[in-house]
Simulated assay, not measured.
Amino acid sequence: MIQEKLRLKDKVAIVTGSTSGIGEETAKLFANEGANVVIVGRRQDRGEKVVNTIRSNGGKAIFVKTDVTKDDDLVNMVNKTLEAFQQVDILVNNAGRIIQKPFTEIAEDDWDHYVRLNSYSYFRAMQLVLPYMEKRGSGNIVNITSAAAINVRKTHALYSFTKAGITHMSKIVAAEYADKGIRVNCLLPGVVYTEMIADNPRTPEVAKGIPLGRMSTPEEQAKSVLYLASEDSSFMTGSSIVTDGGVTGI
């Protein structure tokens, strides 16, 4: 149920890729903290399920079916948010997928698709919400990238490129908008146990390589997103938090 001391009371938050994984857990946590949440994804059945879960716990949410690689869909996402809630205070860019291929096997189609999915969608969503945030004199953007943005992993060349680009772009956007009351930060997760990797036969082997001895859960990552999206991190902008169980730091 909705708590009494709410860190996101009356805030309006768009969370892309929120029909599963980190995005879903972030959306539900935001709602529990008092936010009106916009669930964004391609799977309508999953999106409506998340909305129903939030509403059954006393929260407020809508679902906007969105393919984040399509500009018209991103524009519609913002318009539907404004129609429903009249403002946008928080944007969490989370939608994306991993690609692992040997460097010389990366094709032009791979480049076009993954750059658009993992990079352009973040860039464009920020462009679309920033004018509304600037008008209100406040706003908060959290870009969920990846520890792959700073680590070296074989077969991760394209994926790391897309994540590193957004991680650095976020610092520049943070610098441009710091005097306008808008903060921009990044979360760099390591390996998270989601549906994307649940059936991967290498999952147990990967877990053994993490200093903490296990993969993260989506719920753990969502707590870090909440920290960056709330006033708990009020003096942070242009920063990156690595949540990878010690892989980078140890």
Results as ranks from 00 to 15, higher is better:
Gly238Arg: 08
Ser233Val: 05
Ser138Cys: 09
Leu91Gln: 04
Ile54Asp: 02
Pro211Phe: 06
Ile14Leu: 02
Ile150Lys: 00
Phe161Met: 15
Asp179Cys: 12
Gly209Trp: 01
Thr237Pro: 11
Ser20Val: 04
Ile141Asn: 05
Asp67Val: 08
Ser230His: 02
Glu108Pro: 02
Ile54Arg: 02
Asp109Met: 05
Val51Trp: 08
Ala164Ile: 01
Asn143Trp: 02
Lys9Tyr: 14
Ile14His: 05
Gly238Ile: 10
Ala147Phe: 00
Val51Leu: 03
Gln86Ser: 11
Val115His: 07
Leu117Pro: 00
His113Ala: 12
Leu8Trp: 01
Ser160Tyr: 00
Leu6Ile: 13
Gly165Asp: 07
Met1Trp: 12
Thr81Phe: 06
Ala125Leu: 08
Val206Lys: 04
Asn140Arg: 08
Gly209Asn: 12
Ile62Tyr: 02
Thr194Lys: 05
Asn93Arg: 02
Met133Glu: 05
Gly41Asn: 05
Ile90Cys: 05
Ile106Glu: 09
Glu176Ser: 11
Glu24Cys: 07
Ala178Met: 10
Ala164Tyr: 00
Val142Ile: 12
Thr16Pro: 05
Leu228Val: 00
Ser160Glu: 09
Gln44Thr: 11
Asn79Gln: 14
Lys80Glu: 15
Leu188Tyr: 00
Phe161Gly: 12
Ile39His: 07
Gly213Arg: 01
Thr167Val: 03
Gly245Pro: 10
Asn200Gly: 08
Gln87Phe: 03
Asn79Gly: 07
Val142Arg: 04
Asn200Met: 13
Cys186His: 01
Val152Leu: 01
Asp244Asn: 06
Lys154Trp: 09
Ala95Arg: 02
Ile62Met: 03
Lys135Val: 12
Met236Phe: 10
Leu228Phe: 01
Gly165Trp: 00
Phe63Val: 11
Ile250Ser: 15
Thr69Gly: 04
Gly58Met: 14
Asp199Pro: 06
Gly213His: 07
Thr237Arg: 08
Asp10Cys: 11
Arg7Ala: 11
Lys80Tyr: 06
Gln44Glu: 15
Val173Tyr: 10
Lys11Gly: 01
